[in-house]
């Protein structure tokens, strides 16, 4: 674990990909904690639940632990913001939102390398609706309210 120095992040040129699919360049997010997957176990879930914004670090494009951390936090009732950072691909934006994240904070060179278009497209070209969707971020849920396929089949609200 390391506390995020806000100054450090603000100096980075970065992009925000929202759960709605919008890509923008606002100031860097203020985070209470930058959560590395290796540190998660020792931190204890209960100590995290009161925070208002947690950055979830993705170390490589192959490491999906932070998706599970997001899901565990949402399952435990975490109400704050979950922001993904690190080596993500546009193709993982959907996994992030569907695992309960609110947004991704992306360094400029990562955005440039995949191309701005790929990031703008990241939540358009993907399969939008799963068969079985677990709890989304409370902020995101009302905006992406298409219920999952099983709910639609069985006429249940999201």
């Amino acid at each position: 674990m390391s506390d995020l120095s806000v100054n450090e992040t603000s100096s980075l040129l970065g992009w925000r990909l929202d759960a709605s699919g919008a890509l923008s360049q606002p100031p860097a997010p203020t985070l209470d904690l930058l959560l590395e997957p290796d540190a998660a176990e020792d931190l204890g879930l209960d100590n995290l639940l009161h925070l208002s914004a947690i950055g979830l670090v993705f170390k490589t494009p192959h490491d999906g632990r932070s998706f599970s951390l997001a899901r565990r936090l949402r399952n435990a009732g975490f109400q704050g913001q979950l922001i993904g950072l690190g080596r993500l691909m546009p193709d993982q934006a959907r996994h992030s939102v569907q695992s309960g994240l609110d947004a991704l904070w992306l360094e400029d060179d990562l955005v440039q390398r995949h191309g701005i278009r790929a990031w703008q497209n990241a939540l358009n070209v993907v399969v939008g609706s799963l068969y079985n969707q677990q709890r989304l971020s409370a902020e995101v849920a009302p905006r992406l309210a298409a219920p999952d396929i099983w709910r639609r089949r069985h006429n249940k609200a999201a």
């Binding site: 494009p61 192959h62 490491d63 999906g64 998706f67 599970s68 997001a70 899901r71 993982q92 959907r94 996994h95 992030s96 939102v97 569907q98 695992s99 399969v127 799963l130 068969y131």
Partner: peptide, 9 residues
């Protein structure tokens, strides 16, 4: 299918 959490196990 396309399970978001279990795609990078």
């Amino acid at each position: 299918s396309l399970h978001p959490e279990f795609a990078f196990l």
